[in-house]
Amino acid sequence: MDDSKIILCRCENVTLADIRKLLESGMDSMQEIKKACRCTMGPCQGRTCKELVAREVARYLHKSVEEVDIPVSRIPIKPITLGQINEFNGGV
């Protein structure tokens, strides 16, 4: 199957071909790959794509997934609006 038709990160529309291209350019850090193409940075915050990307990085570098520098997860656990936070505090 055509790598440019396999989408790994749906939020940012990053394909397997995009990830491969960065790896082939010599990038060996998933953190840098993230910074270069925004994979895992969309509204799902990596919930659907992080492991898929990590697996591809590991496979290319002949490493185990545990050896890949996988980006950290951060709050909020679920997206939240500033309006909801204000409402929660009884304001605005």
């Binding site: 915050q45 709050i75 609006t81 500033l82 936070i85 204000n86 304001g91 605005v92």
Partner: peptide, 26 residues
């Protein structure tokens, strides 16, 4: 979390529409 509460209080009066957008990372 304290930061988010303060931010919400200070941002919404300046740009009310931003009260409706989802914050995805902090």
């Amino acid at each position: 979390w304290k930061f988010l509460e303060n931010l919400a209080k200070r941002i919404v009066p300046q740009v009310p529409a931003l009260g409706n957008l989802n914050v995805i990372r902090h």
